[in-house]
Nucleic acid binder design. Sequence first.
DNA 1: AATCCTGGAGTTTTT
DNA 2: CTCCAGGATT
Length: 669
Amino acid sequence: MNQLNAPQARAVRFVDGPCLVLAGAGSGKTSVITRKIAYLIEDCGIPARNIAAVTFTNKAAREMKERASKLVKGKASRGLIVSTFHNLGLRIIRAEYKKLGLKAGFSIFDSEDARAVLKEIMLRNNDLDTDLLDRVQNQISTWKNDLVTPEQALQMVQSPGEEAFARIYLGYDQALNAYNALDFDDLIGRPVQLFSDQPDVMARWQQRVRYLLVDEYQDTNNSQYRLVKQLVGDRHSLTVVGDDDQSIYAWRGANPENLNQLQQDFPTLTVIKLEQNYRSTSRLLRAANHLIQFNPHVFDKTLWSDLGLGEPIRVLRCANDEVEAERVATEILHQRLGRGIKFRDFAVLYRGNHQSKLLELKLQQHQIPYNISGGTSFFARSEIKDIMAYLRLVVNPDDDNAFLRIVNTPRRQIGTSTLQTLGQYASQREISLYAAAHEFGLQQQLPAQAMQRLQKFVDTLENTRRACEEHDPVRILRELVDEIDYEGWLHQNASSGKVAERRMENVHFLLGSIQKMLDKDEDDSMDLQAAISKLILQDLLDRQEEEDLSDRVQLMTLHAAKGLEFPHVFVLGLEENILPHANAVAEGNVEEERRLAYVGITRAQKTLTLTLAAKRKQFGEVLETTPSRFLDELPQEDLIREGFGEESSPERNKDRASATLANLRDLLA
DNA sequence: AATCCTGGAGTTTTT
DNA sequence: CTCCAGGATT
């Protein structure tokens, strides 16, 4: 406890009621949460199994779990729940699935699976263009986040267009039901629905979770907040940690209003601010504070640090986008040579992924090693999706989506016409494709050979399913992968043997991960079904180790940088229409863009360099750009501008600022 | 099944 | 301009 500053310690010790910790960037919020967990267990005598800490990402959960178990001695931390919202939802659903009308072995659809279902429905209805797919998917997600059922959506609609969306929503939910499947949003929505329908079930979970902590609270959406309130009940044993200035996910349903809502929902709420920053120089914090003041605030806070004034912020205006990238590359080389800074201590942040392209090119030219975070996730890889589809189907025969993905992968000469007949038959009888493939009635409608092939496929899976119940499931799964000669299929398809080998490695890695999960068997009885559904929520790509070991410049979007810190930071493209992004300006949501810039600035520990291009190639033509309004919102005396016509120094900037002020006064007079 | 062609879009992303 | 998806072509 003596490693904490006063407000941190107060936040840890305060347990008599709901507590909101407004934790500014770099103010040690994870320490507060983990120490509070330890305090609850060791000093308040609350058993670990009755404490739950909820985060948004697996990474954050992992880190928190590690740090918490280091603080709590021995086995006292056993049973502690540290998980993502979605994992907590899954835990509840797994325990209560019968009450939700689900069958054992239910599948979880990721957004790609969900997309496929939606597309199918839209094609069937053929009243909607498939370019609306993304919008439909978004709308459905929004509805689910707001706990609006398809029926309610149909009642609410105000235009034929909206009605069409709502009808698809209805069809989509029915399809998920038929497939015995849930989507990501359901993992939150279904427990909430269950809790409000059956208070006795809710009461049971309230007893299980006697103290709840929520990290990154500003990122919660409506259904997540609802779940929090339900779990907390009227006990009010709740600590949430968040920073309204770092709310950058409103576009995907996060509702930072939830921070203010808290005060209404919990009138006895105690608010504790953490304003001391342990990351950045005071000049960087001054700039960050100055910028964010342009946003309205319910809770004011001012970050400070005692890490010294530090260097001014440099603003480099380059001739064009190419020069901008080139400049960053050479700048990194210079700093490395001149000041002995390692590559890994630099991060280059940008608004959109495409902005990395030019930079990558330049970094390669200068042979600067770099790392881009935010590639395709492990589960987006085709080989993983294939094998997962096999596993899903073994566990959940109703999963038509999985069936369709693998029925002809590897090739079994089961073509579109066979599948069409099968599909028709199945929907007539209202059974799954898998079940339909077993039925004798189908024999009359299909050529003998096609029927045989289908049968063989289904038999293989059926045998696997049975064998898994009696033997070591992972062994059986390996045998399945052998039997279908997946490796052969990979080699046949991949452009090179090396690629195929890599993919096969991924498959083995996946199976290994399942093995690990089954072996661990930590909280509840972990079976194959549980392992599979849990795996889908987890990003297995622990490239982390590779990244950490190697000396590479870090490239990522501003969004991806949240929660991270780097000694030396570059932020690219401080231009109108990039940061703030054109769409955000059009939608009148500059505030979130400002927070994005704020997140960027507060990532830096020692130096910050902001760049922009005077001209930028866009959609094939070269356009003049306008410097970002955010540059004007920084304290000019902390900036060194370069490339703005007149060279400038902090003093000159001060003059500039007072000159504009004088002009303004003249104008007003 | 592989390849070519065309059209359209062109933020941010986790689970 | 560049990338992707989807469709058509071979």
